[in-house]
């Protein structure tokens, strides 16, 4: 178990397929400092680099430049699975966060083991089942009575709630949410978002949440970041954020992104 940590991102660059015709600069110098316990919403259009930013922090691929410091420790060169002991992640696809052919209790046992080496002791034990029941009952989905059910029997919303629980149950230093409500129907998405906010607030988790939904980004989190073309183009604190509405955000977006659009158009002509 580890405490929420400060995240520091310095001069982050990521170029996909360098030196080929398909070369894409996904991140073009990102500097970001997230104090411990802060909940940051990240918005931006398709291809703005927001998911690449999350994957870079998680260590899914190696960087083209820059460094990442988590809790005072430089993790830039650390392998994904090593970093994962400190980082909880929830993906957009509800199927991505759980092992479908394993049971609810087996999945949760795995998430309880994060941050320590798994050994040859029994994975699902009665004390662990108790912890699982308590945690599952907070989801309000009745899963606490179905510990031995296969995860593939659950609905998308239930699976995403499980993913959220699995990402946070071992108290990660950092929580990464990659459009984790985008693939759910609106009512379920709202439930999952409320659960997320409650868990993040209760544990004081350092959180980065990527979303397409400007309303979500305004309503949740203590800070809002807008990305465009691999850069941070807008960074609002809680006070600035509170005065804005979706309309204002769109205007802001055109202000900061407009210049880039104009340049694109010039290049085309």
């Amino acid at each position: 178990m580890s405490a929420p940590a400060t995240l520091e991102v310095r001069g982050l660059r990521k170029v996909f397929f360098p030196g080929t015709a398909n070369e894409v600069t996904a991140l073009n110098g990102i500097d970001l400092e997230v104090p411990a316990g802060q909940f940051v919403s990240i918005i931006g259009s398709n291809g703005s680099g927001k998911s690449t930013l999350l994957n870079s922090v998680a260590g899914t691929f190696s960087l083209s430049g820059g460094r990442i410091v988590l809790g005072g420790r430089d993790v830039t060169k650390q392998a994904e699975h090593v970093r994962s002991r400190m980082i909880g992640r929830v993906f957009q696809d509800p199927r991505a966060g759980t092992a479908p052919s394993m049971t609810i209790e087996e999945n949760l046992a795995i998430s309880l083991l994060r941050s320590r080496r798994s050994g040859l002791r029994r994975g699902v034990t009665n004390p662990r089942r108790e912890v699982m029941r308590v945690q599952l009952s907070r989801l309000g989905m009745g899963l606490e009575g179905r510990l031995r059910a296969g995860v593939n029997k659950l609905s998308g919303g239930q699976r995403q709630a499980m993913s959220l629980l699995m990402a946070t149950i071992a108290e990660p230093s950092l929580l990464l949410l990659d459009e984790h409500t985008a693939a759910l129907d609106p009512k379920v998405a709202a439930t999952i978002m409320e659960l997320t906010a409650a868990i993040v607030a209760e544990r004081g988790l350092t959180t980065l949440m990527v979303t397409h939904n400007m309303e979500l980004a305004l309503r949740y989190g203590d800070r809002l970041i807008m990305m465009h073309a691999g850069r941070v183009v807008l960074d609002l604190d809680e006070r600035q954020k509170a005065t804005l509405e979706v309309g204002d955000l769109i205007v802001k977006f055109h202000e900061v992104a407009g210049e880039a659009f104009a340049v694109d158009r010039m290049l085309l002509e």
């Binding site: 994962s84 394993m102 795995i110 040859l120």
Partner: peptide
């Protein structure tokens, strides 16, 4: 017995959802 140990669970998950189990800190 092996497949029901902690290590066994990570072994099962490696074949079932590698992305998930890597995100849970296991070297697949």
């Amino acid at each position: 017995w092996l497949l029901h140990t902690e290590f066994g669970l990570t072994l099962l998950a490696t074949g079932d959802n590698e992305q998930m189990i890597r995100a849970m800190g296991t070297n697949t």
